[in-house]
Amino acid sequence: MAVLDTMPIFSYIWKKLAGIHLTIVLCLLLAADLSLGYVCLNRNEILFAPLNDVGLIAWINTYGRCNLKSTAWLLALLVLLTLFCINTFVCTTDRVARLIRHRKKYPRLRLLFRLAPHLMHYALILILTGYLSSYTFARVLDSRTLVPGSSLRLPGTEARIQFQSFSPDYYKGSRMPAFDQHVIRPRARLLLIDGDHHRKAELSYNKPVIFKNYGIFLKDFAPKKKGGGMNSNERIDLTIRKDPGVFLYMLGMLLFTAGIALYLTDWMAPKNGKRRPDE
């Protein structure tokens, strides 16, 4: 901050970037842009689906550039989110610096509660940074199919995944006739082989397996029904991702939730024997 005080032009820019009016304007622009995004996404879902597989840069250079009418909102969203992150960082850093300067005025717990909104702000930046790294640096192997007994090697390693067997849970109730005899929870048994080390794992929907920093996700499977009908051969389709952004956005979510919990605790707590007024 002392550097900023000695250089008026930086100080001016810093103050402008920390402005609450900029926050409000950016929030409203983001809300409008995302609403427009709903219309574009609804009409051209197929344009956006590859974003998770090919990554942001490759997507912008192909789908993004060639369909600007439908994708401009996403490009605008990236610009707005960048500005929003800068605004959030400058604004909250300003206030945190002030709080730390005057920290002796507050008891420790009070200081912690006062830091709660700033924790949420930094957590949001962390989440957005995680998203960006996820869409920029994630390595994705989409739709790798395995049949029982077959295996595949994880790229850049000697580690292998072997599909051993498929033992799903079937729908047992009678409430949804369309699900009668159908798989309700697919369960694939995998053997994870890394040199001499062998480990068994169970893969299912919403239950990925993490192995050698790769996330292994079940994308599809067969058979869908007991007996299987025409499609009775067992197979699983996998999506394999090495995603450096996951840790960042999970940590961000955790910190944001902690920030909300702290803020609500402080807000709901009685002040001097009275409940805090609604203001």
Binding site: S35, Y38, L41, N42, A49, N52, Y131, P208, F217, Y249
Partner: peptide, 19 residues
């Protein structure tokens, strides 16, 4: 957990939740 990515682009409603 389900798809391996932070956003599922199959459902446009995600943008309205964020808006």
């Amino acid at each position: 957990l389900g798809w391996g990515s932070p956003v599922v682009w199959d459902d446009a409603a995600i943008t309205l939740i964020m808006a």
